[in-house]
Amino acid sequence: MQPALEWQVGEVTRVRTETPRTKTLTLALPKWMAHRPGQHYDVSLTAPDGYRTERSYSAASEPERAGEVDLTVERIDDGEVSPYLDDVLMPGDQLEVRGPIGGYFVWDVSLGGPLLLIGGGSGVVPLMAMLRHRAAQKAPIPARLLYSSRSAQEVIYRTEFERLADGDGELEVVFTFTRHAPPGWTGYQRRIDPAMLDEVMQSLGNGVRSYVCGPTLLVEAVSNALVAMGLPAGRVRTERFGPTGT
């Protein structure tokens, strides 16, 4: 039986800058519940005049870390919530949240693999929760992450991806840069396309479970391509973030 979905007040215990546009907030939650990787939390802000607004943010941390959750927030310049979360919130502040929420875009090791994760921009956040969980469980499930960013400086969790992939023969992390590749870059420098998907998937074999997350237009293009390549639609799970650019 699931407990009722209730708002609770978490405390910000840590704020980490990931990239110039993204920060990770660590929240300690009095009514913490283990999430399934891929789930999100709703965040609610209330102004002194009573004005209230809500947004959803994916959990970035693995559920093995009890009592707290990481939310990685990309700053939307004209947004009303993300600039607040990025610029104003400090350790010691309180934040009203409810979650974890959503059973559709989730993966855990009990579902098995092979696992194909495709992220654009901050769409990589719930995919990171899946990879952190996979690592915490030391599950040798074949996994590929294809991660599209505008430039190298916008890559979130870069050093941790390198560390995760290092010494894990079953995990491969592939980057593509759509605007500016770093000097000497020999990898992909274009938007994700069917040829790229084919190359990344090649070594995964049959029965792939895929999770695609990012700006809506990227998710549309990738999920249509995966289905056209023969993946059953039920194994292509999507999470569209709306209009933010890649």
Binding site: G102, Y104, F105, T216, E220, R240, G242, P243
Partner: peptide, 8 residues
């Protein structure tokens, strides 16, 4: 179209 998200 870019404004569309998932039921999730």
């Amino acid at each position: 179209m870019a404004l569309m998200v998932d039921g999730n």
